[in-house]
Design a protein around this nucleic acid. Structure first.
Lengths: 240, 240
DNA sequence: GCCGATTTGTCCGTATGTATC
DNA sequence: CGATACATACGGACAAATCGG
């Protein structure tokens, strides 16, 4: 069962993406929309809030709700939201492959604990994967999973999608993720596994993922060749 | 006048950052918090929603609201949210300076219109600024403002804060911003204005900013030397 | 395994404030 | 000034998840 505000949000979002409300047009007023969806003022406003937060509309006090969404280009590998590599692959039709270059059980050293936020001594599953798009090795993913949260990762699972495995087989729901994007010099290891040529800098996404309980279950470094990297984002300015 | 939910959000956020609720602890229950703030269930929930969206807490259905915030390191220039350079400077005590290297009125060519989303022929104010931190030229900002939205930008305004000028003098409120982060090779121009040494890649934030009317008022490229760049972000996974 | 207490999640109806035209 | 439309806030109701007895 999906929440009512979520259904309404998706409905309006799909209308916008489908061209029913073009760029810079106004949506029907809240009163009309509540009537159309036969829901309360509050529920509709929550749906509009999602549309605003995700960059689809801009409500203008006293005037109406303006559509500011336009069809994006799809020329590069785009990250945004919490999306697994496999999901991004399917959405953008990248036709990518994954090679697992490391898979072992380790214990968190004090250095790892400091770097990642895992408790020292906790059992972790370390994975390294290389993502190839169009035959070129573009992305080097290094994951650390809390083994007690996501046990039984095999090479086959790692080659497919660990998120899928966690959600479908284990019932662990990934809830939220904190990320930092930096640019780092390529290491010797990066050169070994990626096709870098004379490129010596990488775009690096470092993320911590929490489950629905608020427990840290994963730390990842995703190292991207810069010419195929693009991170998109929408931000709403807080009143200061 | 600031909204009640916003006051409550800031109060709890400051408590968390101040250490009143440590990492992995639970906040008091909604019932207790509504009593403490003497507000309604709904208003408190809106404040909790902000805390969740900004990565401070993780509400767990049937259990409580868990704190997942920890003190971040402050070693690099961090972006996140819509924050002007001056604001970031003050918050992180960077002691930065700004040099205006270009300021002129232009008209949008078809190329500019295609790149930015401004209408062809519209009057724009072009600005280029170099940001120095600790004596080193680290950031190269290139802005295009819609002149009719933000008229009368002087070199003095550009050296201080254009956001301040727009909001305080003109009453234009910046509302929403779309950003993309990419990594690009340094151009000859980058080498002229920045202290790059042997660095030949830059972190680039390309953004479009809309006012409260939903009108595109600014396009910016902010080009950062990678060793002082960090972009932070919190994402909540959508139910699929 | 079941029940009840606690806690968060969703939704509604209404009232009032404020910006725009 | 009034009409329209978005913004905030309240209080109540019920659903769903968790936990302990």
């Amino acid at each position: 069962m999906r929440a009512r505000y979520d259904v309404i949000f998706r409905d309006i979002r799909d209308s916008i993406e489908g061209g029913a409300y073009p760029y810079q047009a106004f949506l029907p007023s809240e009163a009309e929309l509540t009537a159309a969806f036969s829901c309360s003022h509050n529920t509709l406003r929550r749906a509009l809030g999602l549309l605003r937060d995700q960059g689809y509309v801009q409500p203008v006090h006293g005037k109406g709700v303006r559509v500011i969404w336009r069809e994006p280009e799809r020329t590069t590998f785009t990250v945004g939201g919490i999306e697994s590599f496999r999901e991004a692959d399917e959405r953008a039709h990248l036709n990518a492959t994954t090679e697992v270059v490391r898979l072992e059980q380790i214990r968190a050293t004090s250095q790892i604990a400091f770097d990642t936020g895992f408790e020292e001594g906790s059992e972790l599953t370390a994975i390294e994967r290389v993502r190839r798009v169009g035959g070129e090795a573009l992305i080097f993913d290094r994951n650390l999973f809390r083994t007690s949260s996501i046990p039984g990762i095999t090479e086959e699972v790692a080659r497919a999608s660990i998120y899928d495995y966690a959600e479908k087989s284990l019932g662990v729901s990934i809830a939220m993720s904190k990320r930092a994007i930096t640019v780092e010099r390529a290491t010797k290891r990066d050169r070994e596994v990626l096709d870098l040529g004379d490129i010596d800098y990488l775009a690096v996404i470092t993320s911590q993922t929490f489950d629905a309980q608020g427990i840290l279950v994963e730390c990842t470094q995703s190292r991207h060749r810069p010419d195929h990297f693009c991170f998109r984002d929408t931000a709403v300015r807080q009143k200061v």
